[in-house]
Amino acid sequence: MDIRRLSDELEIGGLLSTYARAVDTKDWELYRSVFTEDAQIDYSSAGAVVGGRDEVVDWFTANFGVIPWSMHYITNVEILDRSADSATVRAMFYNPMQLPGVDGISACGGYYHHELVRAPDGWRSRSLREENVWFTNGPA
């Protein structure tokens, strides 16, 4: 394994950790920093928004604040295809959360599918598609 590849893997893992922290802390400026300005994001499998980065931030700002807490775990990060300046990444997620009006902990899990590009200041996602596979104790 060469140093560049190892460095890319560490940076990409760090980007996904930043994504999780941004969503869980509701830090939407930090969330924006994970994506390119023209990124397309698709949360439709969870019944949520599809759109550009700023459109998704607007939706999160209006809708995600009612969730008292969430805690994303992102694991099994696979770089499926990588060139000098782009990478296709699939990662599993597990997300326990407290939903308003629901007793106990709710949770969901699935996959994140990212198309990443190397920007001057590091890797950024130009496309994210969430593939929500399961949900327990969801809202009525």
Rank of each mutant, 00 (worst) to 15 (best):
59 W>L: 02
58 D>I: 04
58 D>F: 02
32 R>T: 06
9 E>V: 05
18 T>E: 04
74 I>C: 08
66 V>D: 06
38 D>I: 04
20 A>Q: 06
82 R>Y: 04
81 D>C: 10
3 I>G: 13
41 I>H: 03
43 Y>A: 02
77 V>L: 10
33 S>F: 11
29 E>F: 04
60 F>V: 03
25 T>C: 14
51 G>Y: 00
25 T>L: 15
48 A>T: 11
73 Y>G: 14
63 N>T: 08
51 G>W: 01
78 E>C: 15
80 L>V: 12
47 G>M: 02
50 V>E: 00
59 W>C: 01
58 D>C: 02
66 V>E: 09
52 G>R: 08
75 T>M: 06
45 S>Q: 01
4 R>F: 13
48 A>I: 08
13 G>R: 13
7 S>W: 12
34 V>L: 01
22 A>E: 02
13 G>H: 15
74 I>W: 04
28 W>E: 06
30 L>F: 04
20 A>I: 09
52 G>A: 14
76 N>R: 09
81 D>Q: 14
60 F>T: 04
48 A>Y: 03
69 W>R: 07
10 L>I: 15
54 D>I: 05
72 H>Y: 08
64 F>D: 10
70 S>D: 09
68 P>R: 03
70 S>I: 14
84 A>R: 12
49 V>G: 04
49 V>N: 01
4 R>Y: 09
86 S>G: 07
8 D>N: 13
15 L>S: 00
9 E>R: 14
75 T>N: 08
9 E>H: 13
19 Y>E: 00
34 V>N: 04
65 G>K: 14
38 D>T: 10
47 G>Y: 02
85 D>L: 10
76 N>S: 10
67 I>P: 07
75 T>H: 07
27 D>W: 05
35 F>E: 05
23 V>C: 13
50 V>H: 04
28 W>Y: 12
49 V>Y: 01
3 I>F: 15
69 W>M: 13
16 L>D: 03
73 Y>C: 14
12 I>G: 02
3 I>Q: 13
14 G>A: 13
27 D>E: 08
38 D>C: 00
38 D>S: 08
32 R>V: 07
41 I>A: 02
33 S>R: 01
70 S>C: 10
47 G>L: 06
82 R>Q: 12
15 L>V: 04
45 S>N: 05
40 Q>M: 10
63 N>E: 04
69 W>L: 06
41 I>M: 05
25 T>F: 09
47 G>A: 08
53 R>Y: 00
36 T>H: 01
17 S>A: 11
44 S>A: 11
55 E>D: 08
4 R>A: 15
50 V>T: 13
10 L>G: 12
65 G>D: 12
76 N>E: 05
